[in-house]
Design a protein around this nucleic acid. Structure first.
Lengths: 198, 198
DNA sequence: TTACTTACGAGTAACTTACGAGGTAATAAT
DNA sequence: ATTATTACCTCGTAAGTTACTCGTAAGTAA
């Protein structure tokens, strides 16, 4: 938990970057935050770096520059894209971060937005968000994001007599029996679902 | 069991953290709780720590050493009880705190666990958690927690020709037309739903 | 040179901790 | 019926630590 002053310092850097599309120099921070010494700025930078919240990188022209790591963006996970039945996952180019319960915060997790109704009988509706944990394996009964022959899909994973079965949860769709000819990758396991009302 | 004064003290810390995203200083607690001595604050802290409800993070002493145990930390809201169709809300006596997206953290919100299937067609299943905002009013289309003649229920709120209608979202249940003889209290508006998989 | 980053020593205010003392109120002992 | 005893709570202040700030100087890359 960051002290208020460090938080303010970090917020300034973030907002500077979003305003100017480049990180501030030490002098700019000093003026913006009304400090009187570069030593103070450096002290904060060292502190924040040691706490893993920012890192220093070489700027484009060789001068040093700061960059803020994504991980400090609140209790948020990247929403990587849409998952819809029968389509590759559509990845957004500018990733949004969405607020999730803090227990899900972890490097292995990400968020997808659900497109379509293939899981409607499990209460996963079009437009819901799912928290996915990267994982190549699944247990029977897990809800998983799978890539079958290049197409992504959200299904329940089961083991039947003849191997893996992917069950949609919508009576209109059929169970998929995965044969040995098929290429199946489990991409992740669904940990949670959430939905917002306005 | 905690004495009332200690409970109040602990509650103050918890609510401070959820309001400000950081633990209070001794002075802040002193002012907030209208004590006149830091010694009193320290006495409570020592007491609560020895009862295992609080811990100090920074070893010996130092600034901002106060921190509440994980159980109470973070983005949690009280889960006040169960809401089931046709029953008063069942209030738990020892309130649990559940993790929710941080945007929902605020004194007006709380969490209920859903018991029953009256909203299944809206993807709200038995066992799901709902985030509820205390509110006596509702807009048409809102999902609300309402008390109708003493019975709590989770329904969608609409205005029909003859006044308020409460719609379940399960074909097996009927729409409730609220008459002027009925006592209807809107208790809160549902802001979000979430569900966990194991 | 110019524009910037790093490093260091030292000071101060903010904050926590320790300690001694005292004041109720309830229960037990005389 | 008075007096200890104990648990619970409150105060004031001194001492100890840390977080933050400064100024200055040296280092590094275009």
């Amino acid at each position: 938990m960051l002290s208020p002053k460090k938080q303010k310092f970090l917020d300034y850097i973030k907002s500077f970057i979003s305003r100017n599309d480049r990180p501030p120099t030490f002098v700019e921070i000093m003026k913006g935050l009304k400090f009187n010494s570069l030593g103070t700025i450096n002290w904060y930078i060292v502190q924040l770096e040691s706490e893993g919240l920012i890192k220093r990188v070489k700027g484009s022209n060789g001068k040093r520059a700061l960059s803020v790591l994504e991980k400090n963006i609140g209790n948020k996970l990247p929403m990587l894209g849409l998952v819809a039945a029968g389509m590759p996952i559509e990845v957004f180019d500018n990733v949004e971060y969405v607020d999730v319960p803090s227990k899900y915060i972890n490097d292995e997790n990400y968020v997808l937005k659900v497109d379509g109704n293939s899981m409607i009988d499990d209460g996963i509706l079009d437009g819901d968000y799912i928290v996915v944990k990267k994982s190549q394996i699944a247990r029977a009964g897990d809800t998983v994001v799978a890539i079958l022959n290049g197409e992504a899909t959200l299904k329940k994973y089961y083991l039947g007599k003849n191997g893996v079965e992917l069950h949609p949860r919508n009576r209109k769709y059929n169970i998929i029996f995965v044969s040995t000819d098929d290429q199946l990758y489990i991409q992740g396991q669904v940990l949670g679902v959430f939905r917002e009302y306005n």
